[in-house]
Design a protein around this nucleic acid. Structure first.
Lengths: 223, 223
DNA sequence: AGAATAGTGTCTGTCAGACAGTATCGC
DNA sequence: GCGATACTGTCTGACAGACACTATTCT
């Protein structure tokens, strides 16, 4: 493996977030092999130029093969690189962030993984392998900045097909970890191009009926 | 070069911006070698794991060796990747953005470069090599979003050591390519932690003297 | 009736854009 | 005085946070 010094290793890591019991969670895997065996890490893997169209494809393939998850939308966060961040040699790691509803993620242990589980995004409770603590910090920062700055479109990826505005607000609150005023929230998203009111469809309960919404077709991100 | 299919090529490209005659300019090089010989491109080069500490070092080294420019601050924009974006094989290119005062850039033709010159950032007037037109578009978008959103700290990299608020405003206007109200601009940057008033130092001219400022020590970016 | 949640009205402070006004220089 | 630029005061409209209020359902 002399090539390692001439050609860097190219990895992809994914910070997959979801809301679990009103808290922002991140999906971690326990590594089954060296290096960093038994340590927890963000799911990730190595680029395979012969089968990947680009690094996003790599990320999707890795998530499929390691934790059986299909990721619709990925967002690049940052690139990490250097000779010492991975013991196998000079490496480049491109970090992606993603959001998915908790119940859509049927995380299953696959190859090279001992366990898969959700952890609190702000304090996973484990030392992470490699420089993944940095990765997680950066992914969190980008995610929260997005939700705060641009109107709260992003968490739409976390919603089920039909949802109420209150549910959307609670999701935002869980991500930001602080309460949001109801009136202000509704003013801000009022008339948002990607929110479609399902006229006539209401959610019932032991209270006034709540208007249901869905994500409009063609919803995409792109800054 | 069978390795090309196993190990991707890792490049770094740099979109170096400056204000030239009240317009936002970008530094381009004309390639002296295949591929894309004679075409204009963003300055860039290949990672050398044996001498680079990380990809930012690669970017600095490349700018030094190809166009004789020292870059103090680099910002990662995006990663481009795939089998076809460069004829030499499966490649990854990490794009960085940078700002530097026009007169500090003593761009000199060095190895693998025929010419170096500044072009209008919005319409360079040349078809760019590889996917560098995309690169330029993304770098521009990130740069302008930064200046608009976060308070206008960024263009501080474009200022000489001492400058007036009017000069800073004109720089912002050149980057955004639209006028800014003077009072609003001054209100926004008033008391900014990185702006230091040089009490007593004034710029004279055929008009009222203008207060000089400088960038406070320890100025850094970090979102 | 009472609990719970949905949804709205309104006050207030902040801030950006717009624009005009005053101040200070060289000539 | 005149031209030019520096700098400030103020009005207005947009908008977010705070908070209270009404409305509608189930039990």
């Amino acid at each position: 493996m002399k090539n390692i010094t001439l050609f860097p290793l190219v990895f992809v890591d994914v910070a997959l977030f979801s809301v679990v019991e009103d808290r922002l969670g991140v999906l971690l895997v326990q590594r089954a092999q060296e290096p960093a065996q038994h340590q927890w890490a963000l799911p990730g893997g190595i680029l395979k130029p012969e089968i990947d169209d680009n690094l996003e494809s790599t990320a999707r393939r890795v998530m499929r093969s390691k934790v059986s998850v299909e990721i619709p939308h990925l967002e690049e966060v940052q690139t990490f690189s250097g000779p010492n961040r991975d013991p196998r040699g000079w490496s480049v790691s491109v970090l992606y962030g993603a959001l998915l509803p908790y119940d859509q993620v049927n995380a299953v242990v696959r190859n090279k993984v001992e366990k898969v589980d959700w952890f609190d995004a702000d304090s996973p409770g484990h030392a992470l392998a490699f420089d993944h603590a940095n990765h997680l910090t950066m992914a969190l920062r980008v995610l929260r900045n997005r939700i705060r700055a641009s109107s709260p479109t992003l968490p739409l990826h976390l919603m089920p097909e039909k949802f109420t505005l209150t549910e959307l607000q609670k999701t935002c609150q869980s991500i930001l970890d602080k309460p949001i005023d109801k009136a202000a929230f509704r003013r801000r998203i009022d008339g948002h191009p990607f929110l479609e009111k399902l006229t006539g469809e209401m959610q019932r309960g032991a209270h006034a009926p709540a208007q249901l919404y869905r994500v409009r077709d063609g919803f995409a991100f792109d800054v």
